[in-house]
């Protein structure tokens, strides 16, 4: 099977998502409170990433991506704000955010196809982080659109690829797009 080299763009695809960056007290059960609120109020989570946000782990930041069209964002923010452990919510449209996501993919690959894969990896700015006789694990960090395009390419060329995405994290853009 011929692998096309990666040509995915880093342009934004049509905006359908919205980012909530939620600073929470790092207390037992806080993730369950946030997730439980989404499920009981019928809001959907597209992706979720969570990690401590400061040195002594008093706070964590939960980055939640929701679908902008089907989600009443003001209501989600309002309800989230009522959780005692939620300290601050940053509510960002993609144009207001610098977004990054990490993808890991293990590709099962014939020796003959390795050249194509390496080419795609190079084009995408990904890197090889592990390999064996018949498998290669690559890693890519980038915008969600970039990651999605690379993921699509891998799956098309190597359908048995095992993929793991982290869900995106974001910070406000320093020069917001108009």
């Amino acid at each position: 099977m011929a692998a096309e080299p990666f040509t995915g763009s880093t342009e934004h695809s049509p905006v359908t998502h919205h980012i909530l960056s939620v600073l929470v007290e790092n207390k037992a059960g806080v993730l369950a409170r946030v997730a439980g609120l989404f499920s009981r109020r019928g809001f959907n989570i597209s992706s979720l990433a969570v990690a401590p946000s400061d040195d002594d782990a008093t706070f964590s930041r939960i980055t939640i991506v929701v679908d902008a069209e089907s989600t009443p964002i003001a209501q989600v923010v309002g309800q989230l704000n009522k959780l005692l452990n939620v300290v601050e919510i940053r509510d960002m449209a993609p144009a207001e955010a610098t977004e990054r996501e990490l993808l890991l993919a293990t590709v099962t690959i014939e020796a003959a196809d390795r050249g194509h894969l390496l080419q795609s990896v190079a084009h995408a700015g990904a890197s090889i982080i592990d390999f064996s006789a018949d498998k290669v694990t690559v890693s890519l960090s980038g915008t969600p659109a970039h990651i999605t395009a690379f993921e699509a390419l891998l799956l098309k060329s190597y359908p048995s690829t095992e993929i793991q995405r982290t869900g995106l994290v974001a910070l406000p853009r320093l020069n917001p797009q108009v």
Partner: peptide, 14 residues
């Protein structure tokens, strides 16, 4: 019980 009442309390503590 904290899990059960998470959605029906303002907050709960263990």
């Amino acid at each position: 019980i904290t899990g059960i009442t998470m959605g029906i309390t303002k907050h709960n503590w263990l």
